[in-house]
Design a protein around this nucleic acid. Structure first.
Length: 644
RNA sequence: GCUGGCGUAGCUCAGCUGGUAGAGCAUCUGAUUUGUAAUCAGAGGGUCGGGGGUUCGAUCCCCUCCGCCAGCUCCA
């Protein structure tokens, strides 16, 4: 009888009989390790705990500390879901069931869609199967046999035809369930301790909207009930912060059915916040050497033909407006307009870089099912700028853009962010426009810029726009969500299409490089992100109402008016709550409106020229002279403190 | 655009398998003059998303359109 040498991560070796499995090694080390192990890594490959070694091997046992183990665990939970569905609804056809960031899903083809009640039944059935402690057994099948076995299951047949090797693996779950699957899986259903089915949704087979639409069941799964509860609590927290909900509650904005979907109306309170964002941004443009331009919202179709948008972007544009002289179209992008400004006259290399910036409103015809509050709309304003520069200037311009982006993030209370550089495929496919020299120059500039600034960046090959490489900044919000925000993109196509030029030192014509960049991305979307980041409790400098002044009785009304007037003279946004109501109610209302400061003015305060300060988070702050409070709040506003 | 769910007063919702609608909050009026998260009373307010159909009769059933929500696909 032969034996295999198994090398553990610490370098120690164990000799096992042929036929031994990782689980046996785990048990030999300690029963607790065997209990905690989810899956193994054998010779660098994820491997079932119950799959025998095939020779001398390295072995790593993955427990619930390991993210890859969680993926396997969720994948196994997806199989459990499929098994439950087949027990309840045997006519169902199986698609795929992978793990995802927050859990798993499984796609099913079934004549009758699932209902929420079905979901409960399925979940109950899953627990029933889980309790049976069924093993996930790996068996091997020849491809021709497999195709015969799965011939009535169209999706599995398709997958086997495309993906299976001559001999492929399947996983069973009890006597009745078998699924074409690469694995690996947990050893048995008893390993699965916490899961919950969350929702049903339509999803296209292979993500292709021309293919059949399937029923997708989403679920979440964690190693422990506690982690799962925390995850579900995060979902609840996200709902509580939803900018659509807060936008209505705080009276910030609305979307009007009469006007149409995806078109945002900012109310007075949302308006003042938006103005503050925009003012900050315009000021920053000027400080950083940008020029401000204004360009029209509509232009002749010819412009969009020249830019190329009429060709490749047409299905995202509002339809053509035929007028007397020509056909016009709403602008979906600002670039061509800024290019016209650049091209109005000849430029010397001495004039470069030209940084043309605008809060430019664009209109894109988004498909009806894709709108989402302020995050995805049909009319929105980009903080858009285009930098026309020489090849020598590219790198410093990119660095400046990224510094600008980081300043923007910090100003609005985001400390964490990530960068992603999207590059081309090296020209292999021919789908990218521009010369290799240009691509290399631009990609190097992006790489060096992040290095220089010490930004954590990942490079994603073959994800660039066809017209140039780009770098995207993603922010992490207060509850850990990632949002795509700033983008810095090269564009090799438009300068050529518009035949842009500058006169170089050599007296000859050259084509400038063009960098497209947006930091908020869209003002609307950024506004929505801010609402969710702060859960509606904006820092003082952004709060639509910064101070609520509340007289206790109308005997103090004159004093309260005086307090409000003095604060207003300092530029503070004040709401004087002169309603004939109790302070309790006034405070409750102010709290719900998330007003940072409440100034209670009673007889004592009126007499002494003081105010009783209440902060929305820290409650009663005691009495202080009005002058002192004025200084304090002026300071908070001027320094744009994010965490008051 | 696709799949599923949903649409009742400004908001949150109730309305027993068809007999033309109710509550709380908000609004207005009055009383109350109040000390750190809801004072009391009265009043006004709804073509039950729009249109069409079935029916003696439709908020309820059917068709269609619009919008919203969860996803898919796309994307700032």
């Amino acid at each position: 009888m032969s034996s295999f040498a198994i090398t553990l991560p610490d370098g120690s070796q164990k000799s096992v009989d042929a036929g031994a499995r990782p689980l046996d090694v785990a048990e030999a080390i300690s029963p607790r390790l065997a209990e905690a192990a989810i899956v193994a890594r054998v010779n660098g490959v994820l491997w079932d705990l119950t799959r025998p070694f095939t020779g001398d091997s390295t072995l790593e046992l993955l427990t619930n500390k390991n993210p890859e183990a969680l993926e396997v665990y969720r994948h196994s939970t997806a199989h459990l879901l499929a098994a439950a569905v087949l027990e309840l609804y045997p006519e169902t056809q199986l698609g795929i069931g992978p793990p995802i960031d927050t859990g798993f899903y499984y796609d099913f083809d079934r004549p009758v869609p699932f209902t929420p009640e079905d979901l409960e039944k399925i979940e109950a059935k899953m627990w029933e199967i889980q309790a049976r402690d069924l093993p996930y057994d790996r068996i091997l099948t020849r491809k021709d046999e497999g195709l015969e076995k799965y011939k009535d299951m169209w999706m599995k047949s398709e997958l086997i035809t495309e993906r299976a090797d001559e001999v492929f693996s399947e996983y069973t779950l009890g006597p009745a369930f078998i699924d074409f699957c690469r694995g690996p899986h947990v050893p048995s259903t008893k390993k699965i301790k916490a899961f919950k089915l969350l929702s049903i949704a339509g999803a296209y087979w292979k993500g292709d909207e021309k293919r059949k639409q399937l029923q997708r069941i989403y679920g979440t799964a964690f190693f422990t009930k506690k982690e799962q509860d925390e995850h579900l609590a995060r979902i609840e927290e996200a709902k509580r912060r939803d900018h659509r909900k807060l936008g209505a509650e705080l009276d910030l904005f609305s979307i009007q059915e009469l006007a149409g979907p995806g078109l945002a109306f900012f109310h007075p309170k949302g308006g003042i916040i938006r103005k503050t964002l925009e003012d900050w941004m315009r000021e920053a443009y000027l400080k950083r050497g940008y020029s401000l331009v204004y360009t029209p919202h509509v232009a002749r179709v010819d412009l969009w033909k020249t830019s190329g948008h009429f060709g490749f972007y047409r299905e995202n544009m509002f339809t053509v407006m035929p007028l007397d002289d020509a056909e016009y179209q709403l602008k979906p992008m600002n670039c061509p307009c800024h290019i016209l400004v650049y091209a109005r006259k000849p430029h010397s290399y001495r004039d470069l870089p030209q940084r043309l910036g605008e809060l430019g409103t664009v209109y894109r015809y988004e498909r009806s099912g894709t709108m989402h509050g302020l995050m995805r709309v049909r009319g929105f304003t980009q903080d858009d700028a285009h930098i026309f520069c020489t090849p020598e200037q590219v790198e410093s311009e990119v660095v400046a853009c990224l510094e600008f982006a980081i300043d923007t993030l910090r100003t609005f209370g985001f400390e964490k962010y990530k960068a992603e550089i999207s590059t081309w495929d090296g020209g292999a496919s021919g789908k990218y426009d521009g010369s290799p020299e240009h691509w290399q120059l631009a990609e190097n500039a992006l790489r060096r810029a992040v290095e220089k600034l010490g930004i954590e960046a990942t490079v994603v090959p073959d994800e660039a726009a066809f017209y140039g490489p780009k770098i995207d900044m993603k922010l992490v919000d207060a509850i850990g969500r990632l949002w795509q925000l700033s983008t810095v993109q090269f564009d090799f196509t438009l300068p050529r299409r518009f035949q842009l030029e500058y006169i170089g030192e050599d007296g000859k014509k050259h084509q400038p490089l063009m960098v497209h960049r947006a930091l908020f991305g869209s003002v609307e979307r950024f506004f929505g992100i801010l609402v969710e980041h702060y859960a509606g409790a904006f820092p003082v400098w952004l709060s639509p109402v910064q101070v609520a002044v509340m007289p206790i009785t109308d005997k103090q009304l004159d004093y309260a008016k005086q307090v409000a007037k003095e604060l207003e003279a300092d530029g503070v946004r004040v709401y004087l709550d002169d309603r004939n109501e109790k302070v309790n109610l006034k405070i409750r209302d102010a709290q719900m409106q998330k007003i940072p400061f409440m100034l209670v003015c009673g007889g004592r305060e009126a007499e002494q020229g003081t105010v009783s300060v209440r902060h929305r988070k820290h409650a009663d702050q005691g009495v202080k002279p009005l002058a002192e409070f004025r200084e304090q709040i002026k300071q908070l506003i001027a320094t744009r403190v994010n965490n008051d």
